[in-house]
Amino acid sequence: MKFIGLIISALAALGVALNAAAEQPPQFNTLTITGAISSAEDAPVKVDLATLKTLPVEQIVTHNPWEEGLHTYTGFNPVDLLEQLDAEGDVLRVTAFNQYITEIPLSDFAEHKAIIAYEMDYRPITVRNKGPFIVIYDFDNNAMLRNEAYYGRSIWQIESIEVLDSGD
């Protein structure tokens, strides 16, 4: 009986959790941009999901090591965002909610057509499912990207982006 009760409780908790995820508070769907942004005068810029969705939409259909199967990722190219923000950098210092930090050259988005996805299979990406923002590379169509360097740059649960100018 105790076991059945445990299962029922678990299912109930799962339902609550899923519900909670679907109704994710808006403050977690916001991307904070800092760094070499001339228009912001060193103040952080907060961009919400609705704004991000106004940017040109990019799509990548690929496999990746963290998910089973083929998925369609929809998102934007940070180059477009930085153009709107009048940012001058060439490297993005991306920080996740768990404080994991990685640096991504802007050329990855220009040349390898990487994107920052906000939808997976046409649904918003929850925090639990590594959302709300994930950097996605087209691993299926470019074998050169299938290595640790690019896996490491595929950061998820993105909290903020700092635009850096490496000076190169």
Binding site: A20, A21, E23, F28, P65, W66, F97, V127
Partner: peptide
């Protein structure tokens, strides 16, 4: 809390999911 507790909880569970599913 306005979902902050859920957010922190989801961060933990996202790791659990990662360890249960996929290649890992």
């Amino acid at each position: 809390l306005n979902g902050n507790a859920y957010f922190q909880y989801d961060l933990v569970l996202s790791r659990v999911d990662l360890l249960r599913d996929g290649e890992i």
